[in-house]
Design a protein around this nucleic acid. Structure first.
Lengths: 205, 205
DNA sequence: TGCGAACCGGACCAACGGTCCGTATCGTCG
DNA sequence: CGACGATACGGACCGTTGGTCCGGTTCGCA
């Protein structure tokens, strides 16, 4: 029962908003310099349409980010190693973190917007829960690695959007440099030496 | 030349605002549920006085946090080991991180407010620069630990206010439990086993 | 005691997220 | 094919918040 198909124009408008917002976030100084009104204008719709389609600002940003995250998600859930489920934890963990980092590097403003969206901490978002759970599960399968829950949080904290922005954006740290640093850090946590080698798990943009 | 002493009432009001704001942040649900107007009323002054004394909301929060940080700062800069300058890096690093964590645990709302203050990322704040520089310097003195700059960032990221809030606040992780987790994480990074032992570097409140 | 500078404070402003409601469009049924 | 109800549109509107302005008051020095 219920669950009527939404009207055609509703879908069209939703898509228009989506595209416009994506573009606006892509080239802007600060994520909160792009307002809901801006997006509405750019999409050629009324402001109420935004809110009807996405609930609120947070919802819109989450939706945008979810779209960007989706390829990573499928790559992780059903792709080939090192990201896919067939990879050993010791290689999959770095691959996952690298993928997350790359995603944020490629969508800096969006990630920034997502993580600093006012009072809602990132830790309530669905995407974080997914990431954290997966990472934790992987860490649990690595012998001699206690407190996988906290470790997962701490590792993910090293990819926080504003840190990425600070290093890659303001401080000009090159992309691959940053990936290498994170990989090194991860390797240290994973307990061994020489676990570092990996590359190109993600798009480049 | 110049630099006239500020007037007496100016100082008095500044102090009043300081106290009131501190109290308001201490017991509130969300840090941004305490508005500048609230603070002004609580302090019994006009709103403009707030802005005259602290510039803007960020300035006020920074000032409040700086006051809380100050004891830690002196303990680090001229106190006894393990926090003070005479301690070996291998014990001083965990001590420093533990002190930072304790500070955030004891001033959750304030730390939260500080780190999510709209567009200004924490990485621009003076307190962070201080912390990061010190930590980096210490890490550099530990043999076999490369990329101390990134490592310092990553370790500090594990003490991010919203993570602390998520774990200690929403998830009910006990204080000492959390300290132990962070200590364990740090120890892993520092490269050895058995470097964990330490306690009570900080107030309890 | 008088005078200028410094400061006070609340009315005021602009901007933003979010809502309301009259109107236009869709799509379905006779 | 025409008409009618449901659905979505959109821009005017609202409340809140950070931040400013300016007439009046207080301070502190001579």
């Amino acid at each position: 029962m219920s669950e009527r198909r939404p009207r055609k124009d509703a879908l069209r408008n939703r898509a228009a908003v989506f595209t416009a917002a994506d573009a606006l976030f892509a080239d802007c100084q600060s994520p909160d310099s792009v307002t809901m009104a801006d997006i509405a204008v750019a999409a050629g719709v009324g402001k109420a349409t935004l809110f009807r389609a996405f609930g609120d600002r947070t919802g819109l940003i989450r939706a945008l980010y979810a779209a960007r995250l989706e390829p990573v998600r499928t790559a992780v859930e059903q792709g080939p190693p090192p990201l896919g489920p067939d990879a050993e934890p010791l290689v999959r963990v770095p691959a996952l973190l690298d993928a997350v980092l790359c995603l944020k590097l490629d969508n800096r403003h969006l990630a920034l917007a997502l993580e600093q969206t006012g009072s809602d901490s990132p830790y309530g978002a669905e995407y974080y829960a997914w990431c954290h759970t997966l990472l934790r599960t992987l860490l649990e399968r690595i012998p001699g690695l206690p407190e996988s829950d906290f470790t997962a949080h701490a590792l993910l904290a090293a990819t926080r959007a504003d840190l990425v922005e600070h290093l890659a954006g303001e401080q000009g740290l090159p992309r691959d440099e940053m990936r290498a640093r994170l990989a090194g850090f991860t390797a240290r946590i994973l307990g061994a030496e020489g676990t570092q080698g990996h590359q190109d798990t993600q798009e480049s943009s």
